[in-house]
Computed example of a mutant assay.
Amino acid sequence: MGFAVTAGLLLAAAVAITGLLFFGMIFASDSCGTSAGTGRFCDDSGAWMLVAMFGPTVTLAAAVVTVVLGVVWARRPWTSLALGVLVYATGPALALFTVFG
């Protein structure tokens, strides 16, 4: 029961963080026309902008798959939950690194 509550709370927090980052990344390109925009985020291809926008969503899905597979196949719920948190944390970290350099 404790695992389910902890996993649910972490999932709710991750969905909220992902939503806020996605919303923020929509407006992050507004500074690309000024000197305040970072070179990596404001390149001409737009690839880094897509990484920053969809990275947290992709890592959230990967984290959910990691936790589910760890619980079902490996029978290690707490270890898979910790690994899922680490997998998810790479997405927001990559997005923030992309925008703020």
Rank of each mutant, 00 (worst) to 15 (best):
51 V>G: 09
83 L>K: 01
101 G>H: 03
79 T>K: 12
91 G>C: 07
52 A>Q: 03
48 W>I: 02
38 T>A: 14
43 D>Q: 14
43 D>Y: 04
29 S>F: 10
57 T>R: 09
93 A>N: 06
89 A>K: 04
85 V>S: 11
35 S>T: 15
53 M>Q: 15
40 R>V: 13
34 T>F: 08
45 S>E: 06
58 V>W: 00
17 I>M: 02
99 V>W: 08
48 W>D: 04
61 A>L: 13
28 A>S: 11
90 T>Y: 09
60 L>R: 07
18 T>G: 00
81 L>Y: 00
24 G>I: 05
60 L>T: 10
46 G>Y: 00
60 L>H: 04
3 F>W: 15
100 F>M: 08
55 G>Y: 00
79 T>W: 15
50 L>T: 08
49 M>L: 11
59 T>H: 11
84 G>T: 08
66 T>W: 07
7 A>F: 14
62 A>K: 01
42 C>I: 08
60 L>G: 09
27 F>C: 09
92 P>E: 01
12 A>W: 05
44 D>E: 05
45 S>D: 09
69 L>W: 10
45 S>H: 04
50 L>F: 13
69 L>P: 06
33 G>Y: 07
27 F>V: 13
101 G>W: 08
25 M>H: 12
77 P>K: 03
66 T>I: 09
10 L>Y: 00
75 R>K: 12
64 V>C: 10
54 F>S: 11
79 T>N: 12
36 A>L: 15
58 V>S: 08
3 F>K: 08
68 V>M: 00
53 M>H: 15
54 F>P: 08
15 V>M: 08
11 L>R: 13
24 G>L: 01
61 A>Q: 01
101 G>P: 08
27 F>A: 12
32 C>Q: 10
90 T>A: 13
4 A>D: 01
96 L>S: 06
76 R>V: 07
64 V>T: 08
63 A>R: 01
43 D>I: 07
48 W>Q: 05
45 S>R: 02
5 V>K: 06
98 T>P: 09
36 A>H: 06
53 M>F: 14
12 A>M: 14
26 I>H: 07
52 A>P: 00
83 L>D: 02
49 M>Y: 12
65 V>Y: 05
11 L>E: 06
14 A>S: 03
89 A>I: 04
14 A>Q: 13
6 T>C: 03
22 F>W: 15
54 F>A: 09
22 F>K: 07
65 V>L: 05
41 F>T: 06
63 A>V: 00
100 F>N: 05
91 G>W: 06
22 F>A: 10
6 T>G: 04
63 A>Y: 03
83 L>I: 12
78 W>R: 09
95 A>Q: 10
2 G>Q: 14
41 F>C: 02
4 A>R: 01
73 W>L: 14
45 S>M: 00
44 D>I: 02
54 F>T: 12
41 F>S: 09
